[in-house]
Design a protein around this nucleic acid. Sequence first.
RNA 1: UCCCCAGUAGCUCAGUUGGCAGAGCAAGUGGCUGUUAACCACUGGGUCCGCGGUUCGAGUCCGUGCUGGGGAGCCA
Length: 460
Amino acid sequence: MKRIKISKLLKSNVPKDEVLIKGWVRTRRDSKGFSFIEVNDGSCLKNIQIVADSTLNNYQDVSRLSTGSAVVIAGKLVESTGPGQEWEVIAGRVEIVSLAPESYPLQKKRHTDEFLRTIAHLRPRTNKYGAAFRIRSELSFAIHKFFRDRDFKYIHSPIITGSDCEGAGELFKVTTLALGNPPKKDGKTDYSRDFFGKEANLTVSGQLSAEMFALALGDVYTFGPTFRAENSHTSRHVAEFWMVEPEMAFCDLEGNMDLAEEIIKYLTSYILDECIDDLELFAKFVDKSLMSTLENVASSDFRRLSYTAAVKILQKSGKKFEYDIAFGKDLQTEHERYLAEHHFKKPLIIFDYPKNIKPFYMRLNDDNQTVAAMDVLVPKIGEIIGGSQREERIEVLEKRMDEMGMPKDDYWWYLDSRRFGSVEHSGFGLGFERLLMLMTGISNIRDVIPFPRTPNSIEF
RNA sequence: UCCCCAGUAGCUCAGUUGGCAGAGCAAGUGGCUGUUAACCACUGGGUCCGCGGUUCGAGUCCGUGCUGGGGAGCCA
């Protein structure tokens, strides 16, 4: 007999004489002469209720099954005579694959997220984390589907890089040199004797690679891990996270914003359609307003306004902010939250930021003051996308790099793309985990990553 | 890196003015019942985060370190 997953079993329209289930015991309740066993196999949120009669030849052992034990059950699927579930399985055979001892840490009650983080290897066995990671899987698939349906090509950008890309944050060094005694030259570490012959780091962004491929394949995207060695202690930052980075040739900032809005709406609708059982758990136990938030994101047009207009709104708001608002200063978290959560109450896109607070590759606008940058802000999460139209004019780009004191030689290949068939092009970075926080209402980024990496924490 | 909060049973927490270490849940045992976070009874379970200090006496007060959490900065 072939094993059937519980997700499929529960969708059955008719009773079945023979089914084979493999999974883990969530709870057991004994009655006179038989036991109810709730079995979960991870395929969906719901358990299947097993009715195990005392006539089973190993009932003695079955009646001692503990939470977390692995079992194989052969039996028949019947309509449940009790309330609470549509189907149940009358067990003909219960094979105990392995018994979880009393030290099994997961109890039949709610645990705190902080405690579950200390047992991150077991937490996917809980309802909440099982649901979170099923949604993570679905969301990954939906991202590939979104791009494939629009004829984007998937690019694998390198994990180990020789340049620090955009100067975005602190880097993790990659080296095979002896830490205690590295070779020296003129008092400094001699990286010419390192594995790659020069300094190497873990990537902070696949953007520069993606730009090169956009100028060859047209529309491309990357979707992979990125690393930041920042000593951040917040619920929105981790050292290792995944980023989705589309890059489009022959595309200006407006087209870029169009795609950003389209993908957020598409993914939100997709999850609403495909993961409703899991979503309902979050709507019930994690964030009561989740459904209205998601429907708001999926259906409302994102408000677009320039940085200059945003600054004016903030100045006229009459609200006291901890940080000053003035043209040329970056918007702080409190400002972004005010705009997204109080003023507009829906997702918004802010564009045309002052050039002095943005990286070198963003395209200089005609006013010579601002660059064609855009950030997408959503309620509760804040910045979820950062992107720009890229500077395609080589003389403007080189001038900008000079102003910022960047070593142009290291970027010879990047500049080459502006020498040979340069065209206007745009792209953005979408924080995958932040998106997942939006979708689930989970408020700590550490709880949407299987094994999160944060300062001082790499246990698993 | 800065600011704030917390650390007591497996988990979640209480612990008064400095005076014998507590509850609920979980676990174990027994009972009961088509149960469903089942229910009832009993039992076991403690480096009160570490180190140092004050005191006749410290879970409690002081100093210090560590860990966790929240917020800020940085960003996705």
